[in-house]
Amino acid sequence: MSDEHDVPPKARPSAQATPAKPRPRPQDPIEQEFWRLCQDGQLYFQRCGSCGIFRHLPRYMCARCGSPDYSWEPSSGKGTLFSWTVTHQALHPAFAADVPFVAAVVELEEGVRMATRLVDCERDRLALDLPVELDFEMIGGDFRLPVFRPREG
């Protein structure tokens, strides 16, 4: 019986196990709130209390009017494909089984753009303004990560 240390590090059984997908680990309380709100299966964006514009990424002041007033408002979850790239190399071992995957920027009905993944979409369907809708991928068994898929109809 051979010892695991007799095998090169990358060939060891312990190195072959697929790690869990990493979760976002925001340090800022306002970003933590964004991720906490996602956990109920709904996407929320900040809406300025003065001028009414939606904003994403979360921040403390409105980029349009400078107001610090805001509320968290639910998103429709509907949008269009603004930009994308098909990724063929996993930059983290947890994503190796997903390649190739579509890294996308979605423009939501609320006017914000969000970096995300597009799932369940054949590459020949990829096109600017492709209608998409929100879904959530469960990672680590108990964390909801927002993703998008083509909207039917």
Results as ranks from 00 to 15, higher is better:
46 Q>E: 14
70 Y>I: 02
109 E>N: 09
94 A>L: 04
152 E>Y: 00
60 Y>D: 13
126 L>T: 12
72 W>I: 02
63 A>F: 12
25 R>G: 12
144 R>C: 04
110 E>D: 15
81 L>M: 11
91 L>D: 08
94 A>Q: 07
48 C>L: 12
145 L>K: 00
26 P>Y: 05
77 G>L: 10
48 C>N: 10
86 V>K: 09
7 V>L: 14
119 V>W: 01
123 R>T: 15
115 A>Q: 13
20 A>S: 13
37 L>N: 14
3 D>Q: 07
100 P>Y: 07
50 S>V: 09
15 A>I: 08
153 G>T: 10
100 P>E: 11
151 R>C: 04
153 G>D: 13
51 C>H: 06
16 Q>T: 00
107 E>D: 08
145 L>M: 15
36 R>V: 01
31 E>S: 12
65 C>M: 10
35 W>K: 01
108 L>P: 07
37 L>Y: 03
89 Q>E: 13
41 G>S: 09
14 S>R: 14
83 S>A: 15
88 H>T: 08
30 I>C: 03
54 F>K: 00
117 R>Y: 06
56 H>G: 09
108 L>W: 13
76 S>R: 11
50 S>N: 15
30 I>K: 08
126 L>K: 07
18 T>L: 14
131 P>S: 09
17 A>G: 06
86 V>H: 03
114 M>S: 03
109 E>F: 01
33 E>Y: 03
61 M>T: 14
78 K>N: 12
41 G>H: 09
105 V>T: 13
16 Q>A: 13
104 A>H: 06
71 S>M: 08
24 P>H: 10
126 L>A: 12
50 S>I: 00
129 D>I: 01
105 V>H: 02
62 C>L: 11
135 D>G: 15
153 G>W: 09
5 H>W: 10
106 V>F: 07
131 P>W: 05
113 R>A: 03
64 R>Y: 05
43 L>E: 01
96 A>M: 11
76 S>P: 08
135 D>F: 01
118 L>A: 13
53 I>V: 15
47 R>I: 09
150 P>I: 13
31 E>C: 06
21 K>T: 15
10 K>T: 13
92 H>K: 13
100 P>T: 06
97 A>E: 15
141 G>I: 04
141 G>W: 07
8 P>I: 09
56 H>S: 07
50 S>K: 14
108 L>D: 01
9 P>R: 14
56 H>K: 08
77 G>Y: 06
116 T>F: 01
18 T>M: 10
122 E>W: 00
